[in-house]
Design a protein around this nucleic acid. Sequence first.
DNA 1: CTCTTAACCTGGACGC
DNA 2: TGCGTCCAGGTTAAGA
Length: 270
Amino acid sequence: MPELPEVETTRRGIAPFVEGRVVTRVMLRRRNLRWPIPRAIDERLPGQRIETVERRAKYLLLHTQAGSALMHLGMSGSLRVTGPDAPWRKHDHYALVLDSGQELRFNDPRRFGCLLWEQAGEVHPLLRHLGPEPLGDDFNGDVLWVASRGHRATVKSFVMDQSVVVGVGNIYASEALFMARVHPKRAAGRVSRKRYAQIAAAIRGVLSYSIARGGTTIRDFVAPDGEQGHFEQELQVYGRAGEACKVCGTPIRAAVIARRTSYWCPHCQH
DNA sequence: CTCTTAACCTGGACGC
DNA sequence: TGCGTCCAGGTTAAGA
C-alpha cells in the first residue's frame, strides 16, 4: 500500500493528534513485526513528549528528547488515531497511548512494517544509506545521471533504489517513466542527462500531485482520517495492462522487471 | 561493487 | 462452499 505519498498523507493525518502529546503507555500485542520490537520502545518511550512527526523516505519518526520511534508501514500497514475504548481490530499490533486519552494504533496484516528505536543523537542504520528526498532541494536530474553511470540494471529498478532517491515505489516508478517517455527496461547507464532531468521532474511532479490528492488507494489504503486516496483514478499506466494508452491509444504493456510488475506504453516510451 | 534472488507474511481474486 | 494458485503498494540479506 504505502508509497511516499501515502506515508506523507499518514504523517499529516496523525501529526495534529500526536505532536505535543506525552506517551503514557506502550501496548504491544506481539514483540515481532518485520524485526523484533526493541526493549527501548517499552522502556524509554513512556513518559516522553512527542515533539514532532517527521517523514524520512517511507519511514515515520516520532521525535522525543530521549530518541525517536521509527516506524515503517511495509506493504500493508496503516496508522490511525482512536479513542481510548476503541476495540482492537484483527492485525492491530501495537498502540501508543497518549496523555490526551487517544491512542495511535498500528494495523498491518502482512507484518512487513516495523517499530524500532533511534537513540537521540544517532542515525538509525536503516536510515544511513538513503538517497535524497525527491521533493527536496538536493534532488534533480543530474543526481540521477551521475549515480547511474556504469549501471547496467534497468532504469525502472534504478529509480526504485532507495539509495539513489527515496520514496519511488512500484506504482510511481511506472507512472514517472511514462510521463518522461522513457522505457522501463532501458539500462540506467544508457539514459541521457537530458532524459534524467525529465525523469526527475516527472518523479517530483507525480509524487507531489499524489500527495495533494491524498495518496493512491489501490486496495485498502485509508488515511488516518478515514478518507481514501483519490489518485488511483488518475494513474496513466499502472494496473492498466491491455487498456489504451491515454495519450496514443496503444495497448499498455505489462511485464515483470526485477521481480516487480511494470507497465508502460510501447509507443510513447523508448 | 553491482545485480539478482529469496525471504518475510496475510488476504483477496480467480479458476475449478 | 471449498480448495489451490497467483498476486499485491516494501525492503533487507544472502548469493552470484
